[in-house]
Amino acid sequence: MEYFVQQLINGITLGSIYGLIAIGYTMVYGIIGMINFAHGDIFMVGAFTALIAFLVLVALGVSAVPLALFIVLLVSMALTALYGWTVERIAYRPLRQSSRLAPLISAIGMSIILQNYVQVAQGARVKPLPPLVSGGYTLLHGNDFAVRLSNIQIVVVVTTFALMAGFSFLVARTRLGRNMRACEQDLKMAALLGIDVDRTISLTFVIGAALAAVAGLMFLLYYGVVDFFIGFLAGVKAFTAAVLGGIGSLPGAMLGGILIGLIETLWSAYFSIEYKDVAAFAILIIVLIFLPTGILGRPEVEKV
């Protein structure tokens, strides 16, 4: 029982990170109907940016961890957002009018570029970081097992939900959010009504990348280690989360993220750790086949 509760806590923490990445997939898919295959790698870039920013701050003598983390958060969100913007500008915008496969191939190319760029620039070896947020609370005492809720888990979950709330507000209440929803309905019509479609799409990528950067920082803090390849798996899992929750739906992305986090954690805890990634891929396939509109998605009617 205690073991199970512990796995739930771990799963929700992990799921929050997936949820943050999933938002980027869901938003882009909602607006331009493409899978931004490079988004997982944007997340990886976010994690690296955060890592380096932190090391630079330490070198500059900023020693208060909360202050340093706050600055790191802002810097990595800003710089990663720039990556999101650049990727859209270079690889996707010229293909807005082309067939469906072209942007996908371009996105795969971008994903390969980002991965190998970071590998070349920072080396292929893993980058460890000592735990910055330590401590925690013991919630339950079992006979031989204590359930712990660590501070870092609190930070991850609270940050995620705060961002999620802020972001929902943005989409529901602001002008930008309205433009985004208009573009989601009908790009051409939105353009005719005077909405700057290019700008709206760019901003969607920027926001998605900024959230991915937050996820990157959380990942770095939680696991204390990053490498250039983390974007691939995290990307696939977050994409699964987005599809599971219902692609195009923001609460769906969050819900999907948490479900995937729980499934992965419980699978590793009770079945087999070797096959945990197989489980992730298998869920992706099963969901796409049997529940292509996801839990909170709208059913799609084929245009004939």
Binding site: S106, I108, M110
Partner: peptide, 17 residues
């Protein structure tokens, strides 16, 4: 060699565009 995958990704993007 370490740049080869990089070139590869760039080639994919450049070709489709």
């Amino acid at each position: 060699e370490q740049y080869r995958m990089l070139v590869f990704g760039a080639a994919m993007v450049a070709i489709v565009i």
